[in-house]
Amino acid sequence: MKNGSCLCGGVQYTLTGALRPSVACHCVQCRKTSGHYVSATQVSADQLKITQDATLRWYASSPKAQRGFCSTCGSSLFWRHADDNGATSVMSGTLDGASGITTAKHIFVADKGDYYTIADGLPQHEQ
């Protein structure tokens, strides 16, 4: 079991079961919501329990996806696609303590910012 939260603690959650390796997304939407790129694990609906949601808000970032964030501190926490049967991507940096996961790959690198280089040797996918 892993716990996580936003910066101010207004949103808290618990994850159970095995966590997928983190995937680093460099798309424009992820860069705009985080200020850089996003790295996220993913869990099924039954693995995510939101234990505190007083400040949780959802933003429809596209017709098929929503982003969960804290309305007080602005932390980007979750991403979910309408077609994923409740699977939710959880921003890896919001996990408390050691996560026990590693980054597996980079996606949407064609959209990455020009101010950094990806040089970790992991697989890179243009989309």
Rank of each mutant, 00 (worst) to 15 (best):
Q124S: 06
L122E: 05
C70L: 03
A104I: 09
R20D: 14
S61W: 02
M91E: 06
T55E: 07
D96Q: 13
C6V: 01
V23T: 14
T16Q: 12
Y13F: 15
E126F: 02
V38L: 14
L77F: 09
K2S: 12
T117S: 14
F69V: 04
F69T: 03
S99F: 01
G4T: 06
L56W: 07
D53V: 01
Y13A: 00
D84T: 14
D83G: 12
R20P: 00
C30L: 04
M91A: 14
D96C: 03
T117E: 14
A98M: 09
R31M: 00
T33I: 11
K64C: 08
G68H: 03
D96S: 11
R57Q: 14
C6M: 11
T16V: 12
S92K: 03
A104C: 01
L19P: 12
K32Q: 15
I50M: 05
S61I: 02
S62G: 03
A87Q: 14
H26I: 05
Y13I: 02
V11C: 05
S76Q: 12
S71N: 14
W79T: 08
L48V: 10
Q47H: 01
Y37P: 02
H26C: 12
A45L: 01
D53I: 00
A119N: 15
D83V: 10
H36A: 13
M1D: 10
D114W: 04
V23W: 01
Q52D: 03
S44A: 15
L48P: 02
T51K: 05
G9R: 09
Q12W: 00
V90L: 00
F69Q: 05
L48A: 02
